[in-house]
Amino acid sequence: MLETTVQPGTNIVTIDYQGGLSVEDEQRMRQVLDEVIRDHGSVRMLAVMGKIDFSEISPKAAWINLKAAGYLKKLDRLAVVTDAAWAAKISEWTAELVHITVRTFPADQRADALAWIT
């Protein structure tokens, strides 16, 4: 499940992801991101990654997610909150490949991550 929320009046988007991923989850995320970018020109994102069930990820949702890479150009900052070493490594690669400011925080430091992107 992917839940996408916005702090009212800001360009701060929180994405909470755990379990599987559906096409509807991806479509909602894209809609929120489009609205924030339209209103603010950029996004500051807090990505909270819990336990992911790869067997519950829809192939079509995964494809939509890959196509969402264009949103990376509109990110001012990305804070990734996770205890998964693989997710932290992907965040590191993302920062290097697209030259955005990314910082990874352990799961128990969500408040610090939010403060950092704010």
Results as ranks from 00 to 15, higher is better:
residue 55 S to G: 02
residue 99 H to L: 14
residue 66 L to E: 07
residue 73 K to E: 12
residue 11 N to Q: 10
residue 66 L to G: 14
residue 16 D to K: 11
residue 73 K to Y: 10
residue 27 Q to K: 13
residue 76 D to R: 05
residue 80 V to K: 01
residue 48 V to W: 01
residue 111 A to Q: 14
residue 69 A to D: 11
residue 77 R to H: 09
residue 24 E to T: 13
residue 45 M to P: 00
residue 25 D to N: 11
residue 30 R to A: 15
residue 91 S to H: 11
residue 74 K to D: 03
residue 105 F to E: 04
residue 11 N to K: 11
residue 27 Q to I: 08
residue 99 H to W: 02
residue 11 N to A: 07
residue 103 R to W: 03
residue 58 S to K: 00
residue 42 S to C: 09
residue 116 W to R: 06
residue 84 A to T: 12
residue 114 L to D: 09
residue 41 G to F: 03
residue 79 A to Y: 01
residue 31 Q to A: 14
residue 80 V to W: 05
residue 115 A to R: 13
residue 75 L to R: 00
residue 10 T to D: 07
residue 7 Q to S: 12
residue 34 D to F: 06
residue 34 D to K: 11
residue 40 H to A: 07
residue 33 L to W: 13
residue 54 F to E: 14
residue 16 D to N: 14
residue 14 T to F: 00
residue 8 P to L: 07
residue 16 D to F: 05
residue 36 V to T: 10
residue 10 T to I: 10
residue 94 T to W: 12
residue 71 Y to H: 10
residue 69 A to L: 08
residue 90 I to W: 05
residue 105 F to Q: 08
residue 51 K to M: 10
residue 79 A to S: 05
residue 85 A to C: 03
residue 86 W to V: 12
residue 57 I to K: 00
residue 5 T to C: 05
residue 10 T to G: 07
residue 67 K to R: 14
residue 108 D to E: 13
residue 85 A to E: 13
residue 106 P to L: 04
residue 111 A to G: 02
residue 46 L to A: 06
residue 22 S to I: 08
residue 108 D to Q: 11
residue 100 I to P: 03
residue 75 L to N: 00
residue 108 D to R: 07
residue 53 D to Y: 07
residue 44 R to V: 03
residue 38 R to S: 11
residue 95 A to G: 15
residue 30 R to Y: 06
residue 98 V to W: 15
residue 10 T to R: 02
residue 49 M to N: 06
residue 42 S to M: 12
residue 17 Y to K: 00
residue 19 G to W: 08
residue 30 R to M: 10
residue 67 K to C: 08
residue 72 L to P: 00
residue 81 V to H: 02
residue 99 H to E: 15
residue 1 M to D: 14
residue 67 K to M: 12
residue 11 N to R: 10
residue 28 R to E: 13
residue 26 E to M: 15
residue 57 I to Y: 04
residue 62 A to K: 05
residue 15 I to K: 07
residue 34 D to T: 09
residue 100 I to T: 09
residue 47 A to C: 08
residue 91 S to T: 10
residue 28 R to N: 11
residue 116 W to I: 05
residue 66 L to M: 12
residue 85 A to Q: 11
residue 98 V to R: 10
residue 21 L to E: 02
residue 70 G to I: 07
residue 103 R to L: 09
residue 95 A to W: 03
residue 109 Q to S: 11
residue 17 Y to L: 10
residue 42 S to Q: 14
residue 48 V to K: 07
residue 63 W to Y: 13
residue 82 T to M: 00
residue 48 V to G: 01
residue 114 L to M: 09
residue 87 A to S: 13
residue 86 W to P: 02
residue 117 I to Y: 06
residue 48 V to A: 04
residue 22 S to R: 02
residue 41 G to H: 02
residue 33 L to H: 06
residue 58 S to Y: 01
residue 32 V to M: 05
residue 91 S to C: 09
residue 60 K to P: 01
residue 54 F to Q: 09
residue 60 K to I: 13
residue 53 D to H: 11
residue 90 I to G: 05
residue 13 V to S: 03
residue 71 Y to I: 06
residue 41 G to R: 03
residue 32 V to E: 03
residue 35 E to K: 13
residue 99 H to Q: 15
residue 41 G to Q: 06
residue 54 F to S: 08
residue 18 Q to A: 14
residue 88 A to F: 04
residue 19 G to R: 06
residue 63 W to H: 13
residue 44 R to C: 02
residue 33 L to P: 00
residue 34 D to H: 12
residue 99 H to D: 15
residue 94 T to D: 14
residue 80 V to T: 07
residue 56 E to S: 14
